[in-house]
Amino acid sequence: MPKIKLIEHDGTEHEIDGEVGKSLMRNAVDNNVPGIDADCGGECACATCHVFVDDEWLPRTGAPSEEETRLLGFAATLQPNSRLSCQILLDETLNGLVVRLPEAQH
């Protein structure tokens, strides 16, 4: 079970035991981490599960797809390390992953 740390905008940290094969979004929502809205339920269709991936983890989470990039363009606070957490599938190589949440999901 990969351990994942999600840090809210105000600094509150949440450490969860991630479930492999599920998206980061689904893991966060299932563990009641606040700040991930995921209105579309994980279809890469709403940009409300936006996270910032800590730079050292970027090579392992990979780059966003064209469609994800397009939707991220409509997120409120875009950064080079922005991702939609519904598009990050957890596996063992992501053990220790750290992501930060934006101030708001819109």
Binding site: D37, D39, C40, G41, E43, A45, C46, A47, R70, L71, F74, H106
Partner: peptide, 20 residues
Amino acid sequence: KRPRQHLSFGFGLHRCVGNR
């Protein structure tokens, strides 16, 4: 439980810009 999972704002790149 998940009240925002509805279609009224549309989804995808045309999702309602003013939804919030």
